[in-house]
Design a protein around this nucleic acid. Structure first.
Lengths: 225, 225
DNA sequence: AATTGTTTAAAACATCCGTTTTTATGGAGA
DNA sequence: TCTCCATAAAAACGGATGTTTTAAACAATT
């Protein structure tokens, strides 16, 4: 109890503060004082601030990649060779993403962390994630490729990232958007509600008609007509 | 020349460094040394680091909101009362967004700054933008409302922000995505190319069918079927 | 030519940072 | 009981940060 208590309190506090204020803006003194833990404990248990950041991610991504792998196992077994429909793939990913943080804090924190990882300075955090958990994402995109055979590879790549942007931006900035939405429309909005709204949008976006070729397209930088 | 030279050099350098590394990760010493300007010049000319950040934004957003306002003037005059189609509205916004940074540095910097503003700590930067430039955005969303009369207000609100997320995430993380795309698909991708790809996706997303009601929807948290 | 106001330059200030070192604590094994 | 060792606590270190102060340079005005 002595061991894990400090470590867990550090991780619990760190992930909240990181999500709220980013990595650079969150000092170890912020974390340790709020966690009511000695300052040196972070360097003692994790080695460095960077290692703590990675540990925060690992606590989410380890169970996620595990569950997502086995969910895809189930799916491939059920469809036994046949292509898995896009909607099913997206639904499976959404379900898995929702499962993991449900056990601990909140989806918002998880998404905010993901957003930070992507928009981070030199992207060394994104590379860490890619290196550590790239397998499961490759597996997923491969299944998506088979589900959308008419989409050129590059087009599918960009559309997947378009949708990744939608999801990360929306769910990581949830509090801000919720403020605006509630002020303007006087409605509460839950995460499940948001996912329900996201579903048709994402499907429609992935199935959108291909863009026009621009080989002969003229520049018109200044005038509007 | 003496006056504006230092101020301009500070702004030019600051916007690049901010876009590359974020606000907290960019020190005044980074800026002033790279701009070959004295350290105290920032506090002398701008008052504080926070004021410098806002000045960097203002240099983009002032001309943007000006041009966008007059572009919407033109549009409303041309359509004289009739509703402006969604595609035209989106195209106009895209054109204006592309125009402004073309005069100076790069669109990437502008978008990266916008992304930072949205994903920033307490959102005080987002509030500053909302307060300073909220008018033109309200005007735009109002026109979008008239262009999509079948969409419930709340649904339109969320879809607009979904798409905002797509655009900001994609264009602000452009370098990272370009890296991946070029490594995987051996293709160069320009900003214009990306906007061409974004257009049908955004239109399809806005016109997606409404989500199903979930009044009677059962929870199914664990099992997949 | 002297003075004024504006800008640059250099140095110093106080504060905060991540990390390391040193000291204390408290329980398990001999 | 004594020893050992993992953990915790406290203190200190070196360095970086935003800001302020002081002094110099310069141009414009009287």
């Amino acid at each position: 109890m002595a061991q894990s208590d400090t470590v867990t309190r550090i991780l619990d506090t760190a992930e909240v503060l990181f999500a709220e204020r980013g990595f650079a803006e969150t000092s170890l003194r912020n974390i340790t004082s709020k966690a009511r833990v000695n300052l040196a404990a972070v360097n003692y248990h994790f080695g460095s601030k960077k290692a703590l950041i990675q540990a925060v991610f690992a606590r989410y991504l380890d169970p996620f990649s595990q569950r997502f792998h086995s969910a895809l196992d189930d799916l491939e077994a059920r469809y036994s060779g046949r292509d898995i429909p896009l909607e099913v793939l997206l639904e499976t990913m959404a379900t898995t993403v929702l499962e993991v943080p449900a056990e601990r804090n909140s989806l918002k924190v998880f998404m905010r962390l993901l957003g930070l990882a992507y928009s981070q300075a030199q992207g060394h955090l994104r590379r860490y994630i890619q290196q550590e958990y790239g397998d499961v994402f490759s597996r997923f995109t491969d299944l998506v490729r088979r589900a959308t055979p008419d989409l050129p590879d590059a087009e599918r790549f960009w559309r997947l990232h378009f949708m990744l942007g939608t999801v990360i931006f929306t769910l990581s900035g949830l509090d801000a958007l919720r403020d605006i939405a509630e002020k303007d429309y006087r409605q509460q909005v839950s995460v499940r509600d948001l996912i329900r709204r996201l579903r048709p949008v994402v499907v429609a976006a992935m199935n959108a008609p291909l863009p026009v070729e621009l080989d002969m397209e003229l520049r018109e930088d200044t005038a509007t007509g």
